[in-house]
Amino acid sequence: MNEAAWLTIAFVLMLLAMSWFALSLKSHWKQVTDGKPASRILRSLGWFCVMLSGLACLQADHASMAVLVWAMLSATAAFIVGQVLSYRPTLLRPLALFRA
């Protein structure tokens, strides 16, 4: 698979990770759906995706470059998820799995 594909996968995984981190917080879960989040599961899922995203970065680039892409992706993805929660929180509803 080529570099662009791996980077796209890394970005999507990071967006998923940040979404689940956000959903693990009660206040954001409430913006998206009712009930309470299973915080621990969602957070673990988030970390799992962060790791996978890092692996995808390593597939695309030399390790030293991959680290930078990974860190910058996390910043970009966190900002995007923050904006989605403010403007269109319901977009995250499909990810609101694992109710407590």
Binding site: F21, A22, L25, S27, H28, A78, G82, Q83, L85, S86
Partner: peptide, 9 residues
């Protein structure tokens, strides 16, 4: 961390 994604516009 709790307000990392918070933007109360």
């Amino acid at each position: 961390f709790r307000e990392l994604f918070t933007f109360r516009r």
